[in-house]
């Protein structure tokens, strides 16, 4: 069964609260204003850290799916599902924040040239299909297997789609890729790291809460069955 040395939920919730508060404070009061885009560029801290957290959720979901396939323990199926679920919610946030950022920076709500935005749209479609699949099969080992296999496809699809999106962009108007993005250093880096840590801990806390609820549900059902 699962690990027994988990961090207790209250401690997790408290640290998530502290980190998120700190991150918000730093984003608004500590990080310097961007030279080109000014104050509103600060949405970058949320956008990027949520995106990375969403990837972490998808990867976690795939890892749990893999564990399910090797162990065939329904608990891993539930964990995989909850992780993917979190990933999709965060994915919607990435699309929203990315869209706002695009509007601020370039004046358009949607930009096909934004790799990350397009990739999240693809992933959003992919994981929506994951939910459709899950809702279309009765609960049981078969649903667990099919979901797990599809979740594993997801982690292969992420790098492949990323490469494809780059290739497609190259096709329409060739661009030279350099690694010279906005200068990353000092308070920008510190603020970003805090925001990233806050998002990861928050997502993990929500994952644990959701999981605890679902486990309680299924225990209750088992108990009811025993009593019946």
């Amino acid at each position: 069964m699962g690990r027994s040395y988990r961090i207790p939920l209250p401690a997790l919730a408290a640290s998530a609260f502290v980190l998120v508060t700190l991150a918000i404070a730093m984003v608004f009061f500590v990080a310097p204003n961007d030279a080109d885009q000014g104050f509103s560029q600060r949405i970058f801290y949320f956008h990027v850290s949520i995106a990375i957290t969403a990837y972490a959720c998808f990867a976690g979901g795939a890892w749990k799916a893999f564990r399910h396939l090797t162990r065939r323990d329904p608990r891993y199926d539930l964990e995989s599902y909850v992780a993917v679920h979190q990933g999709v919610i965060l994915g919607v946030l990435v699309l929203l924040t990315g869209s706002i950022w695009a509007k601020i920076s370039w004046g358009h709500w949607w930009l096909w040239s934004e790799d990350q935005l397009v990739l999240f749209l693809v992933l959003f479609l992919f994981y929506c299909a994951y939910f459709m699949l899950r809702f279309s099969v009765d609960p049981g080992p078969q649903r667990a297997n099919l979901s797990a296999v599809y979740a594993l496809f997801g982690v292969v699809l992420i790098p492949v789609s990323f490469a494809a999106i780059r290739l497609a962009k190259n096709l329409i108007h060739p661009v030279v890729f350099t690694l010279q993005g906005p200068r990353f250093g000092g308070w920008i880096l510190v603020t970003y790291c805090v925001a990233q840590a806050a998002m990861l801990v928050l997502a993990y806390t929500l994952y644990r809460v959701e999981l605890a609820g679902k486990l309680l549900d299924s225990r209750l059902r088992e108990l009811r069955e025993v009593l019946a």
């Binding site: 009765d138 609960p139 049981g140 080992p141 649903r143 059902r221 069955e225």
Partner: peptide, 8 residues
């Protein structure tokens, strides 16, 4: 054997 919540 059980399928989800249904025991058979």
């Amino acid at each position: 054997k059980r399928f989800g919540e249904r025991r058979v």
